[in-house]
Nucleic acid binder design. Structure first.
Length: 561
DNA sequence: CGTCCACGCGCC
DNA sequence: AAAGGGCGCGTGGACG
């Protein structure tokens, strides 16, 4: 594979490059060049660049207009390989990997840094340890051998390749940004919240609602302070455990209606209000920092700006450039389709082999009619629901789709027992950890108690914490395998758009937005459909399961739903 | 002054 | 219909 080259930026601003041989080691002399972008631009025949960290290299390339076809991110692969090997939490830098390889002292990872609003900073400190190309290649070659030692080497290779592709997409999206009309945004805020008073007071509508809440209680109440609201309800003879909306909603009291309205609008103001606009929108673009593989399940996260939680009403501000369109594509019932593909349940595969409404089909087969109940039951099975109607219908689900339910039940049991579970491609859920494991705690992994070790698993008799781990693992295999598939989809779509003006500008778990000239829109719609099919085949192999998308060609994001 | 945490809620 | 999985983030209050 002479088209695979390694690349290592040097301290002095130059770069080392070398072609790699079949084993992953340099197949020729290491070349030194003064200019990173020129070195890459001058070698269009290279189809995969192997480097330490995409966030170190790729923003610099994009800044000079250089895109690459593929890459291999060594530190990202290290994270996935460590996880697969059950060594989650060990330092994942290339320097640490080299130290493990040579038996030296393993350096801890550099500390994380959060982004400033509007900055283009990467997650890791810029002074992260550089490795000479020869060392980097040594780590890479060993990683190739570690792929071979996994249960499904071809899947693991696909996973690390897909994650690297995701990092290219994320970096490109960080650069392009999401088209955003500040004028429309301000107009929406004005319609919802009313005028802003000078001097930093609440906008008119919020002030009015706060007054209505106070009037209903007969005393001054700050609706944004949960403790104050709980006290006010208590004085009115109503005891509540929290001020969460679902708990407040059912209460019969005149303060409830304005209170809920206040909370909704307050949320908009603090999370996506005028100061958000000031901080995050520049030159007609919202530029959050997308981080591919930011979670253990493989879902992406964004750093700053709350890009994955844009309220529906605010989406009116996402507006295509003049003459351009947004192609908004949403995968239909992604999670049950993924469950069908990974469990190979015959009944569910048959249902998921059609493009129609999957929940209606499940309902027709299992519950004679009610689509909403079918959806609840399926999601309940995936999330590990413990009570309610979903549980009642779970029994029917189990009868009709036994292998599918058994698949997530097995994952839940493994999680409760502290064993590893993996996605279809081999992304691995962290094992049970002790309560003082900071890295796992940070990642939200429920801790295991000491006394749980060695106990036999009995359904329904696990400790609260063990059950939480079970639900985590149960969800992990589906959500994570869905993330695997979504990465392959993004990679295929990116490739299809490479020769167009079209740009991927947004990605949210099962939804992608492409910004393109109006005349390219139909080609993009086709590309999405083809990418979905290709991703399904690549990820899960031969499967009857289909992955249809709902696509809309719009000028405004809000018009897509 | 800063850091940390619970809360609550937006999205999937 | 019920409160189960994954996140980010602004706020207020506790604490140092």
């Amino acid at each position: 594979m002479a088209d695979r080259w390694a690349l290592a930026p040097a301290e002095d601003g130059g770069v080392e490059i070398a072609p790699l041989g079949p084993a992953g080691l340099p197949a020729g002399p290491v070349l030194r060049e003064a200019d990173l972008a020129a070195a890459v631009r001058g070698r269009p025949e290279v189809t995969r660049w192997v480097w330490r960290s995409t966030s170190e290299v790729y923003p610099r390339l994009l800044a000079t207009g250089v895109r690459v076809e593929r890459c291999y991110d060594i530190e990202d692969a290290e994270t996935l390989l460590l996880g697969h090997e059950g060594r989650y939490g060990e330092p994942r830098s290339a320097a640490a990997a080299l130290a493990r390889l040579r038996g030296g002292p393993v350096p801890p990872d550099p500390p994380l840094r959060s982004a400033e609003p509007g900055s283009q900073s990467s997650l890791f400190e810029p002074q992260a340890v550089h490795l000479p190309l020869a060392d980097l290649a040594e780590v890479y070659a060993e990683q190739q051998r570690r792929h071979d030692r996994t249960a499904h080497p071809e899947r693991m290779r696909l996973l690390t390749a897909a994650e690297s592709a995701g990092m290219l997409v994320a970096t490109e999206m960080n650069r392009s940004g999401l088209p955003w009309s500040a004028d429309v945004h301000r107009q929406v805020l004005h319609e919802l919240l009313g005028e802003r008073y000078a001097g930093g007071g609440e906008p008119r509508r919020l002030a009015e609602l706060a007054d209505e809440v106070s009037a209903a209680f007969g005393r001054r109440v700050r609706p944004d302070l949960p403790a104050d609201v709980i006290k006010a309800f208590a004085q009115a003879g109503i005891r509540i455990g929290s001020t969460r909306r679902w708990e407040i909603e059912s209460i019969d009291h005149p303060a409830v209606k304005p209170l809920i309205e206040y909370k909704k609008l307050y949320r908009i103001r603090v999370a996506h209000g005028w100061s958000w606009l000031q901080d995050w929108v520049r030159d007609g673009r919202f530029r959050p920092e997308f981080l591919a593989g930011g979670t253990v399940t493989g879902r992406w996260v964004t750093n700053g700006g709350g890009a994955l939680q844009i309220p529906k009403v605010i989406r009116r501000a996402v507006v295509a450039d003049p003459g351009w369109r947004l192609v908004v594509a949403d995968a239909d019932q992604m999670e049950p389709r993924v469950l069908a593909a990974i469990s190979r349940d015959p009944g569910l595969m048959e249902v998921a082999g059609r493009e129609g409404d999957l929940y209606q089909s499940v309902s027709d087969r299992a519950f004679s009619g009610d689509r909403a109940q079918a959806k609840l039951a399926v999601l309940g099975a995936v999330y590990g629901q413990t009570s309610g109607d979903g549980l009642k219908n779970l029994a029917a689900l189990r009868r009709r789709f036994p292998r599918a339910v058994a698949y997530v039940d097995d994952a839940a049991r493994a999680g409760e027992e502290g064993r590893l579970v993996r996605t279809w491609l081999g992304r691995t859920c962290p094992p049970a950890v002790t309560a003082d494991d900071d890295a796992a705690e940070e990642a939200g992994i429920p801790a295991v108690e000491d006394e749980a070790a060695g106990q036999e698993w009995v359904p329904g008799y696990a400790s609260t914490n063990a059950r939480a781990r079970g639900r985590f693992a149960r969800n992990f295999v589906v959500q994570g395998s869905a993330a695997d598939w979504a990465l392959l989809l993004l990679a295929a779509l990116r490739k299809a758009c490479a020769d167009m003006a079209a740009e991927l500008v947004f990605f949210q778990h099962d939804e992608v937005i492409v910004h393109c000239p109006e005349k390219e829109a139909e080609a993009v719609v086709t590309a999405i459909r083809e990418a979905a099919d290709l991703a399904g085949r690549l990820t899960f192999g031969e499967t009857p399961v289909r992955f249809p998308f709902t696509t809309a060609v719009v000028e405004c994001y809000a018009d897509a739903k």
